[in-house]
Nucleic acid binder design. Structure first.
Lengths: 332, 332
DNA sequence: TTGTATGCGTTATCAG
DNA sequence: CTGATAACGCATACAA
């Protein structure tokens, strides 16, 4: 049986309130008493009961992470888990815990409402993938500490954090131009990824327009195989592009394969660059120059914000963007 | 302000215990009263306070998932998150929540002890990656509901669940022999992966020995590039093997690239098969025949077991193995 | 079938 | 500096 402050109080010959204060290092308890009580606590293997503590304190140190956790996300969206990891580690450091909650666009509004009303947690982080206007409405009604991961695609007063895909595009464009490349092709994906790719393209265009240059964009390149095929086409041109910039690793892998199949060299004959550092930008030959976003760090930031918001509930709504970084490797 | 059962009791003109019982559908309350109270609860937007409930019930419906959640695991070990997802979904269905806890081999024994004593959760699932004898000792002392994900590599009385890598090896071997292949090379990785690969090899050997055949094993093939190189070597042989069986997708990808570079065809000239279905067995050309393990399902099972254990604390220690499945694709 | 009273383990307020 | 005691919101044994 686990011991309680009553046991400690008895053993120490003091009251439970003295024990409680001593253990929480209250300034109104003498050092001597504190020390003695702590020693007794240690010797008895005392560990405060988390449930009783939550109840008395009216907060349980739990932060929710609500997202669509369907079968396969672990593989399809490892970024999300990298964020989760980052969130968890920060919270852990601050004595908080992270609880995963599966919700969908459909279930989220009602589920979140219940979680808020039932005070299941002290705050909630929500993946933008399940965000709807109804959910935004629910969050807006109560002053509940929240943060959305991903920029909402409608007007709102929510707090959110996202990757600056525009900045990523700019970084990529600047890097390539600095290297002296001019004829660049950008391969981007299907409609689901369009949002992100388009924002990257926006960033690229800002830089190119400044230099009065333009970039060739090929859309609807959705897969490794699409990429192989389009690269084969491209290689038939009389004037080859100097660089193929891909919106993800799969496309880049396709490019490399087609180029190598033609016995051409990367980057000598044609350079490759990719957004995203996953899953194999360091495994290809040559390794890929990539624009990476530190999702773990973004998770850290998200956690930091939500705890701050818990401390200061009347904090102004805020939004953040994390900046991608360039990893130069062999392919450019 | 959220309403409580006191508010409901007042509104309904009954006592709080009647409300409490009505809401938990106790048989000792008349249907009429129940209905009335439920309606009042709905109209007042009543949601039971999770903390108070946990406290009163002496359980909080939380299951811990303890693992090493270092930066990068989301990418390096998506399998783990697929398990987490599976666990979470099952728990969610049963009204439980999953809390992630970062621990290392070093911190785990003390951390788990505290979590147990502090009754932070009703049960704990621990990734074998952080399991040590000290931790096993801690778990063994208290009759705390637990489950290890991954077979412990030392004698113990813990409950665990794991993939049957031996079965995977057998399935692969049987499949290849059935297809009529005989000259088979097995590529396996470095020491970290050795444990798993060796168990697969054990399974393969069982089948081969029955047929009085043997398999050629090439070890220390650690990466995509190692695999490319060794495949190039292999292709120089006079008598080519009929199949290269790889312990993971990266190695398989390397094989395919080398084979295609030599203008040979898969599977006509040489077949490829791989363990694991991730990250690109369906993206290569040709797509890869693979042995897959349903990690999500394993998570489900893990959750199922731990809840069962909570219900029946005196349940015998158990261990399980999930069986891999064969996915036949174009490469064989 | 309903109500009363008590416990759950801590924190916090206030009196000593 | 220390102690008595009242919350905290719900569940439940027992009384009515």
């Amino acid at each position: 049986m686990a011991s309680t402050i009553y046991d400690l109080a008895e053993a120490a010959g003091v009251s439970i309130s003295t024990v409680s204060k001593a253990l929480s290092d209250s300034y109104s308890i003498s050092e001597k008493t504190k020390k003695r009580i702590r020693e007794i606590a240690d010797s008895m293997g005392y560990q405060p009961n988390a449930r009783a503590r939550s109840f008395a304190r009216q907060k349980n140190g739990i932060i929710l992470f609500a997202a669509d956790l369907s079968k396969g996300v672990g593989f399809e969206n490892p970024h999300m888990f990298e964020i989760v990891t980052g969130v968890d580690r920060y919270l852990d450091e601050k004595g908080y815990s992270l609880v995963l909650k599966h919700v969908t666009k459909e279930t989220a509004p009602e589920a979140v409402k219940e979680l808020m009303l039932g005070e299941e947690a002290d705050g909630i982080i929500i993946h933008a993938g399940v965000l709807t206007k109804q959910l935004a409405f629910v969050l807006g009604k109560e002053a509940y500490p929240h943060l959305i991961i991903g920029k909402p695609d409608f007007a709102n007063t929510l707090s959110w954090i996202d990757v600056s895909h525009e900045a990523a595009g700019q970084i990529a464009a600047n890097y390539l131009l600095d290297k002296g490349y001019r004829r660049i092709v950008f391969l981007m994906g299907d409609s689901r990824e369009d949002q992100i790719s388009l924002r990257r393209l926006d960033g690229i265009n800002i830089v190119f327009e400044e230099e009065e240059l333009s970039i060739e964009t090929i859309r609807e390149i959705k897969s490794f195989n699409d990429s192989r095929k389009i690269t084969e086409e491209i290689l038939k041109r009389e004037l080859l592009p100097e660089v193929i910039l891909c919106t993800n690793n799969y496309l880049a892998m396709g490019c490399i394969q087609s180029i190598r199949a033609e016995k051409l060299d990367v980057p000598e004959d044609i350079a490759i660059m990719t957004f995203d550092n996953y899953p194999f930008s360091m495994l290809t030959e040559p390794t890929l120059t990539a624009i990476e976003v530190d999702m773990y760090d973004m998770g850290n930031e998200a956690a930091r914000f939500i705890l701050q918001r818990i401390k200061k509930p009347n904090l102004q709504t805020q939004s953040f963007c994390t900046t991608p970084i360039l990893i130069e490797r062999q392919s450019t």
